[in-house]
Design a protein around this nucleic acid. Structure first.
Lengths: 202, 202
DNA sequence: CCCCCTTGTCAAGTCACTTGACATGTCATA
DNA sequence: TATGACATGTCAAGTGACTTGACAAGGGGG
């Protein structure tokens, strides 16, 4: 019993509600998302939506966190598919950036015209992005550590490096300027240079 | 909203309970299945098991019906993969018999030593098998009708033919004497002969 | 300005599930 | 044979998630 019945049920409700909200966003934008419509589509009462997800503002955050989880799954998968650190990071960045292109939710948020940015969604990409960077950094660092390679960086320096990579990826997703493969190669290149410089240092 | 949230939850509970019961059967036999253990594994109270599934005897029936559904899925799939009726039936019988060999639940029930047959499980294969024959016959007939071939049989005669095939398959599952492919060919051969005879008749 | 819709909150009701208890039956063992 | 351990099956009272209906407050659009 890895996951209990009760947890499954609770998770099922959450998922359904978020699925509905996400579908509405992707169809007609965030402003068309309505607590009543979510409740209706899922077949529960409006109050239950409030109980489970909280105010509408928080729904956007929940969606962001759920989407983040999808990206972190890619991170975990890809990081274990290469031995060399720089290659692993490059390969992972590419996968993440490609998912960013495929993700309908991300495209809807990022792709909306600046002027008509919904305040709630905009907030996610700015105020809340701190949490995103933090969560992603933790996962990436875990993957690097479990890779077990010898690094010319102190623990604190590793944190900085990881966070920088995460921020570069996030930036490339929100303001893409080149295809994923090349953007990933660029990030890997920078990281490689930094590691070489650190190695020379000693 | 093809299936509502509430239905999903109810179905989830049922499935979990039956999964647990089935796992216990396959591990240590029917007699080791306990209402308390089912409740415990799924993480609900013992009373909930009674509410949802009824007495222990009925759990065996539920399991049989659920397993039957798996077999009928195979029937529906295979019957649509051949144009000629006899070929379709032969192909379907083979698939069903092969599933019978793979099905851990079926193997556990059928394969248990005659002397130690648990009364409840034994009942399923005897008393309850009427329901099984009936349900399976309905599905098979539906498939035949939707196949749309011209048949030399009246509707009542078709019922008899279908039921006979179903009974032959059921028998081959419970008392297998040859590999699925050959047993299926045998059934198809009989059916072919019967149809030829019916055609001559007119 | 008023109407309609939305958000957000509250209290009372409903129903699935829990809890604890009890009667009953069966089997192993002293 | 008596007895303890354990299983089935049922009941009533309790808990908590979800429902229902209502309300205040805040925008747009006719």
């Amino acid at each position: 019993m890895t996951v209990t019945y009760r947890e499954s049920v609770q998770g099922l409700l959450r998922d359904r509600l978020l699925d509905s909200a996400q579908a509405q966003i992707e169809r007609r934008g965030w402003s068309s998302v309505t607590m009543a419509r979510i409740a209706d589509e899922v077949g529960v009462s409006r109050q239950t939506v409030y109980n489970e997800l909280g105010a509408k503002r928080q729904i956007a955050e929940h969606l962001a966190m759920r989407e983040l989880a999808r990206f972190l799954d890619v991170v975990r998968d890809r990081m274990s598919e290469r031995d060399d650190l720089v290659e692993a990071i490059t390969w992972t960045c590419r996968g993440v950036l490609e998912l960013g292109e495929r993700s309908l939710l991300v495209r809807t948020i990022v792709g909306s015209v600046p002027g008509e940015h919904d305040p709630d969604l905009l907030a996610i990409l700015t105020v809340e992005s701190g949490e995103i960077v933090e969560a992603a950094s933790v996962v990436v660092k875990e993957c690097i550590v479990s890779l077990g390679a010898e690094l010319p960086l102190s623990d604190a320096e590793l944190d900085v490096a990881v966070e920088s990579v995460v921020r570069l990826v996030l930036s490339a997703i929100t303001r893409p300027s080149k295809p994923p493969e090349q953007a990933a190669a660029d990030i890997g290149w920078i990281l490689g240079l930094a590691l070489a410089g650190a190695r020379d240092r000693s």
